[in-house]
Nucleic acid binder design. Structure first.
Lengths: 207, 207
DNA sequence: ACCGGTCTAGACTGGTGGTCTAATCCTCGC
DNA sequence: GCGAGGATTAGACCACCAGTCTAGACCGGT
């Protein structure tokens, strides 16, 4: 967890650190990013940095969180209060997903950062980072899932954790495939909606 | 790629190196594994090791390959030549998947190794490892996919690469969920078959 | 016997993340 | 106004890392 001291540091330097760290992590991934380079780039001393953060992965977690929050802020939040049919539920999810994807497409550095996060997740140093971010996103996902099950859009014959894991993995795989393959622009909407369709197929309740 | 010299080294030492490396990688993951520790454990000198392998990730690729081959050897190969209906195709896949999973469950070190590989994949050092292993598995997957499409079991309205990526990600997510959550033994068959069912739902051709 | 290439040992390099101590700053109580 | 003492900073230092390099051992062919 980020140490308390960081809140007191002047905004300018805080922003400088976050920006330099984002750049470094986005460019080199977590493991090949150099803390020393970030220090050098921002003129921060090691003592100060270790006063602000518990270590490299802590800084990484903080930066990812800040960037994710910024991404979320730029996207119309998902509103499921008015959806009462399965079709409405799934199409609301699809538009939300499309929004997120296009926001990501507009912020390549953020996208690189997220890719760095995905690439490093699973490594042991990332476990507490994962946990921290899960507490940020997990409840939201669980609520979406519960809503979907409530209106009969999502199956409820399997453990919620498994459903979330599978859905997340599918989304991740689709994202990276779309990002790296970069199909012709004309094909993109069809591919994205078909991809969401796959998730729906896997998760929807069957009569 | 592994250097030619390694083939000439005595079997005993070769096995010692592979075994020590497996242990190290399985225990610490790729990034936190220490080449020096492997050298120390096997009494190999740095000069020799770098004579055998191009570096840490090269050794890792070799070890993963050896272990994977061993896993495959212990499992009845997938035979799709006699399957002509979609149901037969999917059930053949399901039994094969179950075989693999139980073989993995019986060899925890191998499982740890594979988890280490999955965790590290995506990192930049792993790219050539990925490529090497993909040339080992990729054609097989493509052939399974093509067979499935041929008999109308698998959809063909999306790019093969996307289908493979999604199926692989789903399998991975299910595997890790099953491994880490370790549900009661009684539930395992139901969960596995339901999981395969999810993959089928996402990928099967619809009338 | 000796020559030449192959293999081995391990010191060495430039880098890493993280720790530690000494100094400075800054905010309080007085 | 000023001094004490905790919070903050600087950066030397540590153990360790993957990878390079050189000097020599080994060994088969002539």
């Amino acid at each position: 967890m980020v140490r308390s001291g960081f809140a007191k540091v002047p905004v300018a330097q805080r922003r400088a650190i976050v920006s330099a760290a984002t750049e470094e992590f986005a460019a080199h991934g977590f493991h090949n990013a150099s803390l020393n380079r970030i220090l050098e780039a921002t003129g921060t001393s090691k003592g100060s940095m270790y006063h602000y953060f518990d270590g490299k992965s802590d800084l990484f977690a903080y930066v990812v969180r800040v960037e994710l929050e910024q991404l979320m802020r730029g996207v119309e939040p998902l509103d499921l209060t008015t959806t009462v049919t399965a079709d409405a539920f799934w199409s609301a999810l699809a538009t939300y997903y499309l929004d997120l994807m296009s926001a990501l497409r507009a912020a390549p550095q953020l996208a690189a950062m997220i890719r760095a996060w995905i690439a490093a997740s699973g490594t042991s140093e990332m476990q507490h980072v994962q946990k921290e971010l899960e507490t940020m996103i997990g409840p939201w996902m669980q609520q979406v899932l519960a809503t979907g099950q409530g209106i009969g859009a999502v199956r409820d014959d399997l453990p919620p954790g498994l459903l979330i894991a599978v859905a997340g993995a599918m989304g991740q795989a689709i994202d990276t495939w779309l990002m790296t393959q970069a199909p012709e622009a004309g094909d993109l909407p069809r591919l994205t909606s078909a991809s969401i369709g796959m998730i729906r197929r896997a998760l929807e309740a069957r009569p």
